[in-house]
């Protein structure tokens, strides 16, 4: 519960949400750095918000004797998009797999049909988040990612170099970057904002505005690097296994720091992002 509250109150609400809101709410063009910083801030915010909420619920349930399954398994260390969806919002992705993808035929059909199944499932997954075309594009983008990944697997999965560490790291980095690009459509309230953000991210506004302070850029950088590093270090473990590896004094120190940070942060009543879906 403490970790969940720490993720929500300290990381999502305090260190990331303000920058993400300002960048996505800015009406003018932004330079590359500020555009990417805003997107990375939102990528961190939505994970810490939703995973924090899930962890808090898991902890609260556990104190009452209910054992709930994980809803997130270090998704920003995913290698490929099918791996990402096995790690992100598992309750939704499992539902989509069991009640949409498999009834549609899953991958037990001709390749073209299997690809269209993926796109249909992700399209509906996007629409599940809200009746907005931006969510549809987000879902379609993820559907396209899954299809492209499948094509890559056909050609490259058996290559001897495919499982080497540099290739895995590169694939993980590409997955994270592509997921961040998709987040633009998830966060932007309309296509004008999404287009402006993407143009900024890919250097289309060299003389755009700089609206983030150096302190905010540092915060986003430190939290993003820390978050992605932790995901990579723990990607093959359960949370409990990682705790088991730590000595008692380290568990005490980490727990204390998180609890003190929560108290000092004095979170105001920011609703969870997923409450709107």
């Amino acid at each position: 519960m403490t970790l969940g509250l720490f993720e929500k109150i300290v990381l999502a609400d305090t260190l990331l949400s303000g920058s993400a809101d300002r960048v996505f709410g800015y009406a003018g063009p932004l330079v590359v750095l500020d555009s990417w910083a805003g997107v990375l801030a939102f990528a961190g915010q939505i994970f810490c918000d939703f995973a924090g909420y899930s962890l808090t619920a898991i902890g609260a349930a556990l104190t009452l004797g209910f054992h709930l399954k994980d809803n997130f398994r270090f998704p920003y260390a995913a290698i490929g998009f099918s791996d990402f969806w096995r790690r992100w919002h598992i309750s939704l992705s499992t539902f989509l797999r069991d009640y949409l993808y498999i009834p549609l035929g899953g991958n037990q059909v001709r390749p073209l049909r299997a690809a269209s199944n993926l796109v249909i499932v992700m399209f509906l997954g996007g629409l599940w988040h809200g009746a907005a075309w931006t969510f549809v594009v987000w879902g379609l983008l993820h559907g396209s990612y899954l299809v492209i990944e499948r094509v890559f697997r056909i050609f490259f999965e058996q290559k001897p170099w495919a499982g080497t560490l540099p290739v895995r790291l590169l694939a993980g980095f590409a997955t994270y970057a592509a997921v961040c690009v998709a987040w633009v459509f998830f966060r932007a309230s309309d296509f004008t904002i999404a287009r402006r953000m993407l143009t900024g991210m890919f250097g289309g506004h060299p003389h755009g505005d700089m609206i983030l302070t150096t302190r905010e850029l540092l915060q986003i950088g430190i939290v993003t690097v820390g978050l992605v590093s932790v995901h990579w270090l723990m990607r093959d473990d359960a949370f409990e296994t990682s705790v088991m590896k730590l000595p008692a004094w380290a568990v005490t120190a980490v727990w204390s720091v998180m609890a003190v940070a929560i108290i000092f942060t004095q979170g105001s009543s920011n609703a969870f992002i997923y409450f709107q879906f």
């Binding site: 473990d237 359960a238 705790v243 008692a248 568990v251 005490t252 727990w255």
Partner: peptide
């Protein structure tokens, strides 16, 4: 259970073995 994808039919979250009482009091 340590590696994801484990098959427990009746799900139960493992509680890591640690001196939790001491950790809780100290924290």
């Amino acid at each position: 259970e340590q590696i994801h994808g484990g098959p427990p039919l009746e799900f139960e979250r493992p509680i890591p073995p640690a001196p939790w009482r001491g950790i809780t009091v100290t924290t």
